[in-house]
Amino acid sequence: MSVKTPGFSLRATPIGTLYRGGEGMWTWVLHRITGVSVFFFLFVHVLDTALVRVSPAAYDEIIATYKTPIVNLLEVGLVGAVLFHAFNGVRIILIDFWSKGPRYQRQMTWVIAAIWLLVMIPGIYFMMIHTIDALFGSTS
């Protein structure tokens, strides 16, 4: 049930706006969420890598956690977040610098979604093949 106000509707994306509603708004929301997530991971990642200055054993121990099934799954999520942020970043640059960018911003959203899927499907396979093998594989 929606209230009909002349010239104003909450559901449809108004013409001529980029960030109010629809693909333009939700990609903006996702861009922020993925950006913040990756930024926090960067802190953790620099700290774990810094253990190479402590000892080889300390580094190998922390890296071993990255090889466990649950953290492996989190890595897939991280790669998915980085890929979205990267592809949508290209979309933002095209909106800003390409004269036809704003007009095609909606189509570009579906193009980056398709590229994201095309990269993620083989990506998930190669990232998780060891984990799947270790959990369900018949051979050692």
Binding site: V52, P56, D60, I63, H130
Partner: peptide
């Protein structure tokens, strides 16, 4: 780091 040649499984100090 995550895909090529065994991905994260091959990463260590060496």
């Amino acid at each position: 780091m995550n895909i090529l040649d065994g991905g994260v499984q091959r990463i260590n100090f060496a």
